[in-house]
């Protein structure tokens, strides 16, 4: 499979009164055509900013400072305003977390979907409207002719997210970036929305990059997983390896936090401490203050991303030894 999107050494910083703070620090990852990749991490891990960097939507005072984002071989970061606008919503589209605030409250949902179609597909008036109604139908909205004229606040959370999906699908994009698409929804609706995204992407062969903090969503959707912590990728692996054999202490910690139906303990486990704020990131390994296996080296120097298997990379010194021993 060829690579659809390749992010190399992406660094996105925010300019604050205390100086530059890196939100995304040297992130590299790639997505192949047709696969679903999940970026997992807690709030503040830089996962959303990574997603926004792809389409150049990082809010001010944030800016991408270094790195490249290759989409079908072309660097999105080097594109002119006009070129990137042709990609946005057309070849790469986004689904956001909170559909109520992500939809314009004073425009009907029909008009909001139609906007993309009129912009990118040069369909106008009646033909564009027909297309919108088709799309609404396709994402499972009942009575689409009526919903076309509805305002976002009159729809339920699940319906609104279906509208967002219809909007994202409207120009048959090659890549959909979904930033926490189910976080604002209740559990039953979450399952419906995930199923819908899954079946639509299979039908269309759309590649999906899903950003989430919910490992349940990862298990449901993803082929491969990228775990982020404090602006860095700490582990990359296939979804099977991640759940079977997590290698980074942080990933292990995350998995231990998931309540299990047949678990021995009644207590809900948690990783001690909190994610360091963007201004107070520790030196060395960013995870060392919370890690059970910290030794001196972790405090001094940031470990690199060690490749331990064909599809698994881990940013931890515990694996450096494994590799060294293997090399001997």
């Amino acid at each position: 499979m060829s690579k659809l999107l390749q992010i190399n050494n992406l660094k996105t910083v925010f300019y604050t009164e205390e100086g530059q703070v890196p939100s995304v620090d040297n992130v590299s990852l790639d997505i192949k055509k047709g696969e679903t990749v999940a970026i997992v991490g807690e709030s503040g891990s830089g996962k959303s900013v990574t997603a926004l960097s792809i389409l150049g939507l990082v809010p001010s005072p944030g800016r991408v400072v270094t790195g490249e984002i290759l989409y079908e071989g072309k660097d999105l970061l080097k594109m002119t305003d006009k070129e990137i606008k042709k990609i946005r919503g057309n070849e790469i589209s986004m689904i956001f977390q909170e559909p109520l605030s992500a939809l314009n409250p004073v425009l009907t949902v029909g008009k909001q979907i139609q906007e993309s179609i009129e912009l990118h597909q040069k369909k106008k008036g009646k033909r564009a409207k027909e297309k919108v109604i088709q799309l609404l139908n396709r994402v499972g909205i009942p009575r689409p002719e009526k919903v076309y004229y509805s305002y976002p606040h009159t729809l339920s959370g699940g319906m609104r997210q279906r509208v967002m999906i219809a909007m994202a699908l409207s120009c048959r994009p090659k890549l959909i970036i979904a930033d926490e698409p189910t976080t604002a929804l209740d559990v039953t609706t979450q399952a419906q929305i995930l199923n819908l995204m899954k079946s639509l992407s299979e039908e269309e062969g759309t590649t999906i990059l899903i950003i989430t903090h919910d490992l349940g969503v990862v298990a449901e959707m993803a082929d491969r997983v990228v775990v982020m912590y404090a602006g860095q990728v700490v582990e990359q692996s296939t979804v099977y390896d991640l759940f079977e054999k997590p290698e980074h202490p942080y990933t292990k910690g995350l998995l231990d936090c998931t309540p299990k139906i047949h678990g021995e303990s009644e207590e809900l486990l948690a990783i001690e401490g909190t994610v360091p704020t963007i201004q107070n990131r520790p030196t060395g390994c960013k995870f060392h203050p919370r890690c059970k296996f910290t030794h001196e080296k972790c405090k001094e120097k940031d470990p690199e991303l060690f490749t331990i298997k064909e599809k698994q990379k881990v940013r931890c010194y515990l694996h450096e030894k494994v590799i060294e021993e293997r090399l001997k």
């Binding site: 809010p59 606008k85 919503g89 057309n90 986004m94 909170e98 314009n104 409250p105 906007e115 909007m167």
Partner: peptide
């Protein structure tokens, strides 16, 4: 201008 729906509009490729 700092609202989410403005970001959505930008993500659609609008000018």
């Amino acid at each position: 201008l700092s609202q989410d729906y403005i970001r959505t509009a930008r993500s659609k490729g609008l000018g």
